[in-house]
Design a protein around this nucleic acid. Structure first.
Lengths: 226, 226
DNA sequence: ACCTGAACACCGTTCAAGT
DNA sequence: ACCTGAACACCGTTCAAGT
């Protein structure tokens, strides 16, 4: 019944034409849907209704495929285009944009934080925006340098934690809390003490609270700055 | 020539006995040597001079194997046992211990920062030590909670960056710097400005500088604390 | 109880064709 | 130029044996 009518030779013109773009878009959708464990050249080919080897004409291999997908994802990053207002707010919007991108593609976060190509080329606009914000506030270069490195490490670390479910939602958190009270009270007293005193809204506002700590640190280490 | 004398049935007693411990230790050594891409149940079996399926008697599958290896790695973590002195120094030694562990097993960092089991069980001693340090300084629970989350995100983000070579050593850095001057000066002016002004020793002292920013942030957000 | 060996359902990729 | 198809050298894992 299903049209498995693949024939050798050139493709029929029109929507059936295989492009690098179409290969990457399909791979991105697949990864979002099924995750990296499930992605294979052969499954992707089946999705494209094409012989497995057809893909290799548009992408040199699986690694290059994933690199291309990451590139496609980074193209979705919408950095704030105006650099006005407090530097803290500038950095907040950049950080939020980065986090939103990661949250939109949780299955890709691991490649985003892992691929060496990312730091070299793709994340340069992010770095530039962060540097620009800090320089606009006359923050010393040395501080700015370390601050940007810290921000990137924090963003990647947070995104990775969020994507692997370390930051579980309310119900699971509650379960963990109970577990802490019962079983681990004596083994991990400080942890228990903190968990007892932390309110639910603090669990939710985690990202902004962590970011605020970073921003506060940058501010104190920047003499002569508002 | 080589002794490929595997026979069916029970193992010869003595050093040939396959244990979960021996399986995991061999896998850890293999991962340190060749990395995660190269690890397969079959290669590991060959290393152990054993049929591939023998491994499954000590470990339920590949995922469990890796989880076990990560557990083994975390057992190497040497947290400072005395909680005295400034809370900043306490946190510094915990952070250094974590970083040293990651640096000792760069190929495992990805599993360490990725495995959901890690946060739930293995990193609890790290969290506890961090919480204890902060509580000993009377830092408010809400701040302590976010501070520990930030520290963990930073540590994972930094370790991941270091392990994937994003923080390259001197020579490669220098190459990147030149590239920035030549090609990207107009596209990324703020980045170029920073790179021009940052000294070489700042590139080296990155970890401690980032950590200092975090510590400064925690301190300012903790009213009534030294 | 612990290990083997064949078998199953997959992989990524090379290479020689087809149109 | 672009796609196919067979083939190669691998995978993880199940299942039925062996001792």
């Amino acid at each position: 019944m299903t049209a498995k009518s693949r024939k050798p030779g050139r493709p029929r013109t029109g929507e059936g034409a295989l492009t690098r773009e179409r290969v990457l878009r399909t791979a991105l959708a697949f990864l979002d849907r099924e995750g990296g464990e499930s992605l294979s050249m052969r499954r992707l080919a089946a999705e494209l209704n094409v012989d497995p080897m057809a893909i290799y004409h548009h992408v040199s291999g699986k690694d290059a495929l994933i690199a291309g997908v990451v590139e496609l994802m980074f193209a979705e990053l919408r950095l704030p285009d105006t650099a006005t207002g407090f530097w803290q707010d500038q950095i907040r919007s950049i950080a939020h944009a980065y986090r939103a991108l990661a949250a939109a593609h949780p299955n890709l976060v691991i490649y985003m934080a892992t691929n060496p190509e990312v730091d070299t080329a793709l994340s340069r606009p992010v770095n530039e925006a962060l540097y620009a914000a800090l320089l606009s506030a006359n923050i010393p270069p040395r501080t700015a340098f370390h601050a940007v490195n810290l921000l990137v490490d924090f963003l990647n670390g947070y995104a990775l934690g969020e994507s692997t479910g370390q930051l579980a939602d309310g119900s699971e958190r509650e379960g963990r809390r109970l577990l802490l009270e019962e079983e681990l009270g004596t083994q991990f007293p400080a942890t228990q003490e903190i968990m007892r005193q932390v309110a639910v809204q603090d669990l939710r506002a985690n990202f902004d609270a962590e970011l605020d700590l970073v921003l506060a640190g940058i501010q104190v280490q920047s003499p002569g700055t508002a």
